[in-house]
């Protein structure tokens, strides 16, 4: 009996099998296509939608409602409000999450209290409340705490040790009030998201970093947070998209440079209701689509070192490099 070594043996024929058929898929596609066609037909032929009013013009020489000046200004306001309140929310959220996980019980308790309060109060209520803070305090200032009370203690009735102060209604203009209401509320939610992210990182990571001599701040910034981002980013995308829509709440502060407020103003002026709502939906759809693209890239950035994508990419890169070295 002779033994064949693998190199001598002929390579077996490549498999050419008949693939499994999926008739169910084709039926589903057909049904969905018919439903989609029915929907498009309904939307296009129903005059109530008034597509001309939305896209083209209301009258001679004017633009469609989606592109009129006030609506575009409102759109800008909505984007700005989303970005600013998310910046506040994320930055403050990280701080609160770190406080919550700190070994200092006071910090941890304050963070818990913050989350408790700001998650309990509805955003709409918070927005209206911030818009009316001027009723509670006339002036807001920065200086010696409890100056009036300390003054009274020493028999001075009107001690004013404020370095500067400003009328509450000036500081908390509608826009700032809305931004703070949304941002502070968001921070409470972000704090929980960030906390979950930090806790998802294996404790061996911070141990290894500490053993190398990194300080606690460095361990957090360089090792833990970048890894936590993988867990933090997807729900943050959710929060951002929710925020785009929640900006419509500040119409009650009231803030006028906001998309929904502007569109509503048009509908109450022209008595054209439905197309205005459709226009609003379309703008929100556009904004959210852009955000989803952004999220895709952010996720890919923080996924490096994990996914199959980086794997193949570096591998081909290394292979190329090797070829360059010895052609």
């Amino acid at each position: 009996m002779t033994e064949q070594t693998p190199t001598e043996r002929a390579r077996p024929e490549a498999i050419k099998a008949v693939p499994v058929r999926h008739p169910g898929r084709w039926i589903t596609i057909a049904v969905l296509a018919v439903l989609a066609a029915m929907f498009v037909h309904l939307v296009v032929t129903n005059d109530q939608f008034n597509w001309r009013f939305i896209f083209v013009s209301i009258g001679e020489g004017r633009r469609g409602v989606m592109f009129t000046g006030p609506v575009l200004a409102g759109l800008r306001g909505t984007i700005l409000l989303t970005v600013l309140s998310m910046i506040i929310g994320v930055a403050l959220g990280v701080v609160i999450a770190v406080m919550r996980l700190s070994p200092n019980p006071l910090l941890s308790w304050v963070a818990w209290l913050y989350t408790w309060v700001f998650r309990a109060v509805p955003r709409l209520v918070l927005a209206i409340l911030f818009g009316n803070l001027g009723i509670l305090w006339e002036r807001i200032g920065f200086g010696l705490p409890f100056d009036a009370q300390i003054g009274r203690l020493f028999g001075i009735t009107d001690l004013n040790a404020q370095f500067f102060s400003i009328k509450a209604t000036d500081l908390l203009s509608g826009f700032v009030a809305g931004m703070l209401a949304l941002g502070l509320s968001e921070a409470a939610y972000m704090a929980e998201i960030v906390r979950a992210g930090i806790q998802s990182v294996d404790s061996g990571q911070s141990e290894a970093a500490a053993a190398l001599g990194l300080s606690r701040g460095q361990v957090l910034r360089r090792i833990v947070l970048p890894q936590a981002m993988r867990v933090i980013v997807p729900p943050t995308g959710n929060e951002t998209i929710a925020m785009v829509k929640d900006t419509s709440l500040v119409a009650f502060v009231p803030v006028s440079t906001e998309l929904f407020f502007q569109l509503q103003a048009i509908s109450s002026r022209t008595f054209i209701v439905l197309p205005v709502l459709v226009a609003a939906c379309l703008w929100y759809l556009v904004l959210c689509s852009v955000l989803m693209v952004v999220q895709f890239f952010v996720e890919r950035h923080f996924g490096r070192g994990y996914g199959a994508r980086t794997r193949t990419r570096t591998r081909t890169r290394n292979a190329q490099r090797r070829q360059e070295v010895n052609p």
């Binding site: 294996d202 061996g204 990571q205 141990e207 290894a208 970093a209 500490a210 053993a211 190398l212 001599g213 990194l214 300080s215 606690r216 090792i223 970048p226 890894q227 923080f302 490096r304 070192g305 994990y306």
Partner: peptide
């Protein structure tokens, strides 16, 4: 904490489960 970190610089440690930082090359 800073002084402890300083002491640790001159002591290397290798773990059973490697604990490399997965997000870095």
């Amino acid at each position: 904490e800073k002084e402890v970190a300083e002491q640790r610089r001159s002591i290397g440690m290798v773990f059973q489960r490697f604990n490399l930082f997965p997000h870095m090359t």
